[in-house]
Each structure stands twice: as C-alpha cells, then as structure tokens.
Design a binder for these strands. Structure first.
Lengths: 371, 371
DNA sequence: AACTTTTCTGAATCTTGTG
DNA sequence: CCACAAGATTCAGAAAAGT
C-alpha cells in the first residue's frame, strides 16, 4: 500500500529526474504542497563591467553568462518574486527553503522572501577558506557567501536535525557560520575541452550540511536552478529524492552523467573524516583593536629595545616601522624574529610577553570553534 | 580667518556633540554633503514573541524596547528609506556608509540602500567568538551579524586604507569576515542598577577596524543611532570627529560620560601604513636628466630582455620605442607592465631594479618637505 | 618514487590622473 | 564627456613540472 501512505498527488512527482525549461512554468506544473525542501542558487546579477587581470597579468575568467544579465534591480526583483511564489506553492506547509547569494543579490532575495510570507530561521554564512583575493586592493577580500534558511510561514514545524549537526561539529552546537573550501580539484566538473563545466558549481560539503540538517531520508528536495546538479548528487548520496529544473541542455547533460555515478551511501559510509584544526593565526593588530594594547603604548624587548604601537598594528621606532616580527628582526639585525616572544608590555610594573595576550584570544576562539 | 578656510556650511557642523531627537529631522537640519562617514546601527525589528527562557529557567533579557517595535515590514521599510535618504543627503560625494544588522532587518536595509542609489562595496560578517547559544536547539547558533559597506554612488572615490587593514591582519589582505568577541566585561556599560545600559552595545574593536579602514584622521563620522556612543568613543580615540544623534536621554547621559573619559591618541600613534598610490609620482625621465642613468645605457629585465635608454626618457629596442611601461608590456605581450619593477640597470656587476633610483629621489623629496 | 618548485585559478560589481 | 597613459596589485590549494 505504498501509494496510500503518500500525500495526494505525490505519485505524479517526477522524482530523481531533471526537468528542462523555465523553473516558474515547471514548478507551476507540479502538484501543490508536494516537496519537503527547496535549495535554490539563483543568478547573482553580478553587474561586472570590464575585464579584470591578476597582478601577473593573467585574465580572470569571470561570470559573464547570459543567464546572469538583468537590466535593472526592478527586473531582478520581478524575476525573484516570480520564482519564489512558484516555489512556495509547491512547498509542503512544514517545508523549508534555502537560498544562496552574494551581496549583489542576497538583500533583494531576503526582502522578497519576507514579503512573500516565508519566515527566516537563520542566515548562514559560508566562509570560504580559499576565496579569490581582491587583486587591486580596493576592497576587502570577498570571502563569503550568504544562505538564507526560511520556513514556509511563521510558526510552521520545519525539520531541523539539531543533534546531527551538533555531531558534525564535534559535539558543539552548529553555528550560523560555516567554514568550507570552494569547489575545485577532482570535484570540479570539466567539459570536453577541460574547462569548468559550470562557472559557479557549489561544493558538495555545503549541500551535505544543508540536507543533513534540514531533511530526513526519503524527503523530496527541489532545486529550481539545478546547474550541474550538486543538489541532486548529494541528495542521492544521502538517500533523499530530488527534482532538478534547469534551462541549459549542456548543464543537464553533465548533471545526469554525474548523478548516475553517485552511489547511495549506506549508513556506516556516512561518517565524515575530519581534520584537526591547526592553532589559529592571531594577527597582532587584533590586540590593538580589542584594546588589549593601546596605540602609542611602548613595547620592550628582553634586551632593552623599545618600540611604539601604532593604530594599525605595526610598530614604530625611529624611522623604522613594520610588523612586530619585522621590527624585531631589524633591531636585532637578524634575518627573522618571532615578535610574539620578542616583545613585552608592562602592566602593574611587571613585564609580560605579548604572547600571553595571543593565548587569551585563542582560548576565546576555541569556544567558538566552528570547524 | 578660520571660517574662511573651511568649506561652506562646515562652521555649522556640531562636531563632537550628541544631538537629542529624531535622526531624520536632525540630519535634515545639517548642511548637505558635510560628513565623511556614516556608521548606523538601526533598530533590528526583532519581532520577538513573548519571553525566552534558558534551560535553567532563567529569563533571557531580550531586546523588547519600544524603539524596536514596528508593525509591519512596510512600516520598517518606510522608516529605513526615510533615514537613508536623510543620511545620503548629508554625506559627502566621496563619503561612505556602514550599516549593521541581523537577518531580521539587514535584507530590507540592503535592498533600500541599493534602491536609494548607494553602491555596495562589501558585506562584512562579524563572526562572534562568543555568541549566545540557541537554548531551544531549534535553530543554528546565531553567531554573526552583517555589516554593509556602501559608497554614496557608483564610481565614487571612497576612502579605503588597504595597507592599514592589511597591516592589522599581519600582512594578509583583510577579508570580509571579522572574528571579534561581543561586548562584555569592563567595556560593557552598566546603569545605576548594575544592569546593562544598552541592549545592543557594539564592541569598540568593531568600530576601530571600520574607522581605521574607511576614514582618515580629522574626518567627520556621523552616527544617527548613537546609543551609548561606541562610535564616538572610538572616533575620539582615533582622532576623528563625530556627530551623534540619539532619541533617548538616558543613553546620551551614559555616552557623554563615557566619551569624556576617552583620551585622543597622539599623532604618531595614529599614523598608519599607506599605499604606494599615495606616494608622489616620479617621471622616469628624471633619472636620465639627473644623470642616474645615461642615455645609451642598456636596461635589462629579469627574463633577459634588453632595451636602450634614450635622452628623452623613453626606451628603444629594435624598432619599438616608448615609455618603460609600454616597452615592457610590448615585449611581454601583456596588457600592462610596471616598468619600475620590470627593468634593471647594471652597476659594478650587480643587477639593480630601477625602482631603487625612484626611491632615492622620493627620499630626497621627503627631506625637502616641511613636516 | 619522493620531493620541491612552478603554474594555474576561483560568483569580482577591483585605478587614477591628465589633457 | 572621453581617450590615453602611468603604474599598482594576490591568497590558498591543487595540478603540473622539474629534480
């Protein structure tokens, strides 16, 4: 009696297939309130201008695909509202949605989500361990993307596997910031020419965490911007069903081949290998920002040298300035110097190595360890 | 004649004071295009329902102040648009704004910023090293807040002290995710009863990094939601001027006392590492004019290319001639080339980059300049 | 084969001054 | 407004190439 235990209309769901076409039209053709989770990676509307070159003159292969072009914010908002409405219709009352984006689009997406009645549960920051730097030194390294997790409406009973995520995080409650590398290496899909098959392929680790935390085995996961099928691959691996929607034939072809090669995991295989984290690096500047040392304060070395702390975390001593390591090395006329053990500060008449302050910060960071 | 050297209307700026009242009305009363930076920590529109209790049944002291209550998203959007418009008017053309918020309000704030013509430069995640856990285990630990950094308009020349932030981060480009502890301990201001004076006091370390990175000494920083004055305290310490606006008398009282106790840092402590772009431009021809290089002399590149110096400060190599940059770019078949680091000259058998000669000229210029 | 060095690349709203 | 030229600018990790 398998069909009887399923909700009405579920039999019509095209499970574990990729549907080709516009996601709004296709979602409208699916039965109402039929999927448990939606994961969406919509176009970011990057609005890039000219070319960008690295300092070594190589050209950055930017996202200039036609599907990321929108005339105005208003056009993008209409696009967003349209697909969110269609998505909300196919979502079960206790279902949830995850949307990923960058500062180019995520604020518009978030506002639209709220306007359409979704209820935001968390915003989750994907902190990239290896982002592309800012080559021209004109802004901060754009080192993260944002995901929004929302239930269909306020008060809905969404799925949240608290203990599973806590286990993934070595027994500590999972935080809203996730440190994960970008997708490259063997995981990155290539086309026939050896070029990347999709400009913005997401890492499977990201989807792994989302699906473990927000779905149960057997749940139906819909991805309206399927691309090369990371959502489908991870869903299959974790024993969830998926429905993919994608406009580009080329991406579908790659995705189908990819997913065919995925093996559903048995339970024991679900264990994740985890590497122990090295001692986190603490920039000296943080001691200044946090008021542990004051700009203008004098640091001294064991052999009587002295230097002044500046507001940007460098040291200055007659004409010379640089990092704690550089200034130490220069004063000692040595090729290198560990500034952390070289410099001391004075408190209550006592001379204390600044490394003590670094240890203090590290112990605070341990409390926050996100992995 | 102090007033004559000041820009028009600047005399009217109420520097280093806290103005009591509604921020829109007060900003409208200030002269147009008069402040360099705005830091805003607007109400978060938290929409908390009822009380929250910890597992041990103690009550969480939530933000339920009357100033954080908005009926609907539309009401909040109107409020946001109103203060952003007023803020944009008082901002100088090359000024910038920072706004901090959480998932409750930041998406609406970000969309409004874009709608009003601000140009987003980065979104910055403040990752809290010691956030409040999620007691119910129903969501992820809300471990971060989001700041949006935007210029007044696209293409504006905002202030960004790239080198100073890089120095603060021990020589590595500053990223868009900042790990800092929340404000507690001695920094957390208490009222007469020993309770926290303000529910959402921001850490000074956060403002330190913002002001070091996005302002210069002497700049005017406006905070329209001043609260207990973290912005003012850090601005004063770092030699920036501030203007605070706050509705609640109780907060103003605390802030004034707090800021009075802050000492301004002296000038040497405020100096930060500066970008090469700020250094004076030296034409290559000057090296020839001064006899540091002789016409007819051969320059070589690291990879073995050679060119001859001509009397007018251009280089020549078989048929080709032009500036040190143009010839380097042509020889390397590259879009551009920094001739100063590309070309070397020979002295006493050693190969030396011509940039050394430029540095020599620059240091002579420093000696000649009155400090 | 093991190890070191070089090369390559990633959702990027990425310069500034002069004429 | 535009065109042109000077010249400043990158981090982590994997793959490829060299020893």
């Amino acid at each position: 009696m398998r069909t009887m235990s399923k909700p009405k209309g579920a039999a019509a769901l095209p499970l574990n297939t990729i549907l080709n076409g516009d996601c709004v039209a296709i979602m409208d053709s699916l039965p109402e309130a039929s999927v448990d989770l939606i994961f969406a990676d919509p176009p970011y509307n990057l609005q890039l201008r000219g070319d960008l070159h690295r300092p070594d003159n190589s050209r950055v292969d930017a996202v200039d695909d036609h599907w990321d072009q929108f005339d105005t914010f208003a056009t993008y908002d209409r696009f967003t509202t349209d697909w969110l409405r269609a998505a909300r219709r196919v979502l079960k009352p206790n279902g949830a949605i995850w949307v990923i984006g960058s500062y180019h689009n995520i604020f518009r997406v978030g506002a639209s989500l709220q306007n359409e009645g979704f209820w935001i549960l968390n915003d989750v920051v994907w902190r990239k361990s290896n982002p592309m730097p800012n080559f021209r030194g004109k802004r901060l390294t754009n080192a993260h993307e944002t995901m929004i997790w929302a239930s269909k409406s306020e008060g809905a009973k969404y799925t949240f596997n608290y203990e599973a995520l806590k286990a993934l995080n070595e027994g500590i409650q999972m935080r809203s910031d996730w440190v994960l590398p970008i997708c490259n290496g063997g995981e990155r899909l290539k086309d026939a020419n050896g070029d990347k098959a999709h400009p913005t392929q997401k890492p499977e680790a990201l989807l792994h965490r989302v699906l473990i935390g927000a779905t149960n085995p057997g749940d139906v996961v819909l991805d309206p911007f399927f691309g090369t099928g990371t959502t489908g691959a991870v869903a299959k691996m974790l024993g969830r069903d998926f429905i993919g929607i994608e406009r580009e034939h080329a991406y579908i072809e790659v995705a189908e081949k990819r997913i065919a090669n995925v093996r559903r995991l048995d339970k024991t295989a679900l264990e994740v290998s985890r590497s122990k984290r090295a001692e986190p690096r603490v920039p000296f500047g943080q001691l200044v920002e946090r008021g542990m040392l004051r700009p203008g304060e004098t640091l001294v070395s064991m052999n009587g040298k002295a230097a002044k702390v500046r507001a940007d975390g460098t040291l200055a001593v007659d004409g010379l300035n640089g990092s704690i390591h550089q200034v130490g090395a220069a004063l000692e006329n040595a090729p290198s110097c560990n500034g952390w053990t070289y410099w001391c500060f004075k408190r209550d008449g006592k001379t204390v190595p600044i490394d003590v302050l670094r240890q203090q910060i590290r112990s605070e960071m341990d409390d926050a360890r996100p992995v």
